[in-house]
Design a binder for these strands. Structure first.
Lengths: 122, 122
DNA sequence: CACTTATTGATATTAGCGTATCATTTGCAA
DNA sequence: TTGCAAATGATACGCTAATATCAATAAGTG
């Protein structure tokens, strides 16, 4: 027979990178970290992994889209203004949805913190 | 003499639009609302108003940049998934910055709610 | 091994958004 | 009213991010 996805060096490398990284990565970060993977391939692999819900999208205003392993549970993000990396922030706040004006139906929310990560803060 | 900014129909219209609107507007929304104002002019006027801190930038992930009158005090935003408009959300949460991991220095934060605005929720 | 076809990747192309150009219009002061 | 610099606006251009192209490569079955 013949149908199905093939196991390639590049795809393995990409999965590895995401499995090891505990923070969301941009396509460029991914390409750098994976090594020897073309941009087009990176985009294709990410698109596939998104489709099969193995990756989630992390969008932060004014920044390139990032991706991280799906299924981490509810969390938010911290964007370091110096090293430009984005980190996961566990936990959430109780009354987020109560901020909405009356009659507004809240379906999701995002909390993003900005500042300096531990490495850059010293 | 001769130095200084001139008062034009277009600039007046743009200021009026922002003064009347209680929600952040994109350049396109601004151009539509102002009527008879070219895109280039809109960009130029907004740039000037940003420089003199009469306007603030409102950035929401994956969406075009919006602008609103500066000096409203700390608040956040609600993005309607249906009509694509963005609304102000007054108030904030106490412990936002406490979410950050140890040793991270939080300098700012953004809370964005997604869902349906009162008009679209009915 | 041999062959079929998915995959790769350099690059062309597209799309979205903002700035630069420059001829024309228009404030506004004398 | 006149004159000049500021302002306008249609459009060309530039930038960034992502997709499409297509010849070359390689996975994996028989």
């Amino acid at each position: 027979m013949s149908t199905g996805a093939r196991k390639t060096r590049q795809r393995e490398a990409i999965r590895d990178v995401f499995e090891r990284s505990e923070r969301p990565l941009t396509i460029d970060e991914l390409v750098d970290a994976a090594g020897g993977v073309g941009v087009a391939t990176a985009y294709r692999a990410v698109a596939a992994l998104l489709k099969e819900a193995w990756l989630d999208t992390v969008e932060i205003a004014g920044e390139p889209v990032r991706y991280e392993r799906a299924g981490k549970g509810h969390h938010h993000h911290f964007a370091c203004e110096k090293c430009e990396r984005v980190f996961d922030v566990d936990g959430c706040l109780e009354n987020v949805r109560k901020l909405a004006p009356p009659r507004f139906r809240v379906k999701a929310h995002a909390v993003t913190l900005y500042g300096l990560c531990s490495a850059c803060a010293r």
